[in-house]
Nucleic acid binder design. Structure first.
Length: 299
DNA sequence: CTTTGGCGCGTTAAACCGTC
DNA sequence: GACGGTTTAACGCGCCAAAG
């Protein structure tokens, strides 16, 4: 693979144009004249060796390649922001910042709840939360773009150490008025013949859930599937079927669907990802303790 | 140490192109 | 035809490394 000689200024211009959707506005945001940006963009395109924008009706329309490249650019700029943040902290001698990444499901309910609790006891600490795919969470920790990452599946990364923090049992959610809504505990056998809303094939929760039903010899009517617990909750609420989701997503949806315990108990383990070789900051340790506490309340 | 030439980046002015 | 937007052309400035 041949490498490309890039100037940061060109990348800046590209990013600005992608964000602002126009060269003129990008120029404004960069504090330079519009032709300057146009030029940087042209040079950048020449450097990368493929078209980043289609000129349609006198407007710039990003190509598919531009979008792919922009994802990497954004990641790079997160790294730059980290430099700026570090400088700011050193200057102000502030206690610290905690950058947390979590999978979409964890970042929807669970982590905000922990952060709220944590923030009450640690004012002066900046906490930021990023929602990502599981692999990206671990990747961010490995690349030191985040201090702590929270995931369910075990994902290996040479620079990252994963530690199990605790388990929570998955809950069964059914639409209101459903025949299973009257039961105290829903068993695998109860789900026989039911329309079932699943996580995506090959995902960790999907694999575990399917195995439970296979082991119990229960056949469900497999229908819709979705990536996020929140989507699954919405599907169940709309009558697409019943489902198993983590207890926090279920608790957050208690007003919209009926939440039941499920037997056999199907535990999901929440893991924290941290940099393998580096003593953790006291702030991060304190945050992890809060996570364990909140997990404990969910049993 | 100074000069020189190349390079990156910026500017303004003007041309150009759809759209309203 | 005015307008908003992009591109092109011509040029200036500062930096840097090589040459004198």
């Amino acid at each position: 693979m041949t490498t490309v000689d890039l100037r940061i200024r060109q990348v800046e211009a590209f990013r600005a144009v992608m964000q602002q959707r126009s060269v003129t506005r990008a120029a404004e945001s960069l504090g330079v004249s519009q032709p300057a940006v146009s030029r940087l963009l042209a040079d950048f395109e020449a450097s990368v060796g493929f078209a980043l924008f289609a000129r349609r009706q006198g407007r710039l329309v990003p190509t598919a390649e531009a979008h792919v490249l922009n994802e990497e650019v954004e990641r790079a700029f997160i790294g730059l922001e980290r430099v700026a943040q570090a400088a700011g902290q050193i200057r102000e001698r502030r206690r610290g910042a905690l950058r947390i990444a979590g999978t979409f499901d964890l970042a929807a309910d669970f982590l905000p709840r922990v952060i709220a609790l944590f923030a009450r006891e640690h004012d002066g600490v900046d906490v930021s939360l990023l929602a990502l795919e599981p692999a990206a969470v671990v990747e961010h920790v490995g690349a030191q773009r985040c201090d702590l990452g929270f995931v369910v599946p075990l994902i290996a990364h040479p620079q990252v150490r994963l530690e199990a923090l605790g388990q929570w049992p998955m809950r069964c959610i059914v639409p209101r008025g459903h025949r299973l809504a009257r039961k105290r505990i829903v068993t695998a056998a109860d789900c026989a013949g039911e329309a079932f809303v699943s996580f995506l094939k090959l995902s960790e929760p999907r694999t575990k859930i399917d195995r439970i039903f296979a082991d119990s010899g229960v056949t469900r009517q497999m229908g819709v599937e979705a990536a996020l617990a929140q989507s699954i909750v919405a599907l169940v609420e709309a009558g697409a079927g019943i489902a198993l989701v983590d207890p926090l997503s279920a608790a957050g949806a208690a007003a919209r669907v009926v939440v039941k315990r499920f037997s056999p108990v199907l535990p999901e383990t929440v893991h924290v990802a941290r940099l393998a070789e580096q003593s953790q900051s006291m702030v991060a340790d304190a945050f992890v303790r809060h996570v364990v506490t909140v997990l404990g309340h969910l049993r």
